[in-house]
Design a protein around this nucleic acid. Structure first.
Lengths: 337, 337
DNA sequence: GTGAAAGCGCTAACAC
DNA sequence: GTGTTAGCGCTTTCAC
């Protein structure tokens, strides 16, 4: 691939001039400019972004760390960042660290080695301390879906407990009085807080959640199917089910129906996330909207700002989002007595 | 951020030695190595990937051009590439060009400026000529979901017409005899070939497709809803519907049910792509499996191979994939006489 | 308006 | 084993 030197040689000018043309810099004679432009065109010259990044110390790249792209939730996250990247004429560098401490660390390191201008990180496994340390070294680093008090200005997160509460109140308002829950088996904040919020919510009305009616599995469609089976096998009736996320909820509904239980007539089900799927599953899923795309876009914006002025925090309290209830067809007023 | 020089200075060695340590090169004394390692650790040194890419002429990056990440189909594509990237200790650089000629071109150019080792491109708008030209300049370039005879060794694609035929045969085998079709409004190969294949398929049994019963819309859930309304408003009965993709199919089913038509009892519907959604929608969607993740992974592999040995085509005929029928619940034997 | 030259952080000969 | 040095392709003073 040709370089700036080739262009300069053929055009009979110095590389400085070519550089000025490429960067639309000032003070280049009309004639020279056109000649250089023409030659660049002819030999198919493309400036080497790596070389440029090396000298300018910025490479128009936003890094994203997510576990995986198959999960629509994370695809939305990446898309939110990409949206901003496009606006700013930047690009997204993906670093997928499946969920393990070392792979998350490595995914982040790869982005840092690339000297990404900004980094949006979805990390569940790394310790608070490590993340705090990291944030000191990297100004344009934002944590998404995670809250760490010490560096809250670097955090963009959702109030999960509030989501659990909203779910509880919705079910309560529908006169439900016996509850079950399907949650993620991972002992991280999100499921823990959602569950806690839900428990708190029903407790306000004097209800509790039996431990036997809490099923934990992988937070996937398949996990939801298995969890629903576990619940059914307990042979304890319940009229309403709070599920960790939409994927699990849809998996669970699938299992219920295969076993002769109708949703919502026999069991009301409420999910979490409001992914596209939830709008087109049958029955349409009642769920809590998780504005992840928006959050990711704002995280990217924030990262970019911090990278520009590392001392000046435009969001000193961080960005906290609230989930909101989306009532569709999978929940219904409790008829049983 | 600290550089190799800092490490060298503090450790009291030359930068060459540090470089050797970083690259696990040979001939470094045990003691020196440990000292250097320790210092790198202490000052949090991370090698600058841009500088390295500049001198080695490779940057462990696979570029991907897709329209968008919100579409699960493209997310799967990106994931397929990412899978290979992870295997090879590389990373994915995303370049989203919404569907327009100039944005596609720009998305590709950005990747080339970065000197990606390999590039997997999903391009629908660029001309054959431009792509052929491009492929000459870039050895590690593979086109996915597109077939260009002149550079077929660079193509990884699906036999769309065959998919249409398979759909037709399935419906015919179910005794259907009146057909409608919902397709994408874009005049590109995929919808055209699928439709042609379908028409050919039913023609073999002596049936034809009425023009009035071909609805064209955006290839999205919303597009499917609208298209279904258009079909319904024609007031021409049909027992089976072939839809361009699963998203549209699910949108269409949604509209049908909202209008009192049951699927599959009143109308059998077959989709295309076999995205995750299709497995969990109600009714579960009969569709044609499009092994996009696999295809993308192999496209990435092929791109990497070609980049290594530009003259030697391990797939001189390109990689052609066949869709396969996945029978689920949205199609049923035709009962109406 | 244009060119010469220094240097971004690194690798890879080539010396010693 | 370790150091010196010449670039990789580019931007950016500083001269002229």
């Amino acid at each position: 691939m040709s370089t700036i030197k080739d262009v300069a040689r053929i055009a009979g000018v110095s590389i400085a001039t070519v550089s000025r043309v490429v960067n639309k810099g000032p003070k280049v004679g009309e004639k020279t400019r056109n000649r250089v432009l023409k030659i660049m065109q002819e030999i198919g010259y493309m400036p080497n972004a790596n070389a440029r990044a090396l000298v300018t110390q910025k490479n128009t790249t936003i890094g994203v760390v997510i576990p995986d792209l198959t999960d629509p939730f994370f695809a939305s996250l990446a898309h939110g960042v990409d949206k901003i990247a496009r606006e700013k004429n930047m690009q997204v560098l993906l670093s997928t660290g499946l969920i393990s401490e070392s792979s998350e660390r490595q995914a982040i390191n790869l982005l840092l080695e690339r000297r990404c201008d900004a980094v949006v990180i979805h990390s569940k496994k790394l310790s608070d301390d490590e993340l705090v340390e990291l944030s000191k070294r990297v100004p344009g680093l934002i944590l998404i879906d995670r809250f760490i008090e010490r560096i809250k200005h670097r955090c963009v997160w959702l109030d999960n407990a509030e989501g659990g509460k909203l779910a509880a109140r919705h079910l309560l308002a529908m006169a439900h009085n016996s509850f079950a829950c399907i949650t993620s088996q991972y002992e991280i904040d999100d499921p823990l807080l959602r569950l806690q919020g839900f428990k708190d919510g029903i407790l306000d009305a004097g209800f509790t959640l039996e431990n036997k009616l809490i099923a934990k599995q992988e937070p996937t469609l398949q996990g939801g199917e298995i969890a629903a089976q576990e619940l059914l096998s307990q042979n304890i009736p319940f009229s309403a089910l709070f599920v960790y996320n939409d994927a699990m909820a849809i998996g669970a509904i699938s299992t219920f129906e295969d076993n002769g239980f109708r949703v919502p007539q026999d069991i009301s089900v409420i999910g979490f996330d409001d992914v596209l799927l939830s709008r087109y599953s049958r029955p349409k899923l009642t769920t809590l909207n998780y504005p992840i795309e928006d959050m990711a876009a704002n995280a990217a914006l924030l990262a970019l700002e911090y990278r520009e002025s590392p001392e000046q925090y435009s969001a000193p309290e961080g960005l906290k989002y609230l989930p909101s209830l989306v009532t569709r067809e999978s929940t219904i007023r409790n008829k049983s007595r």
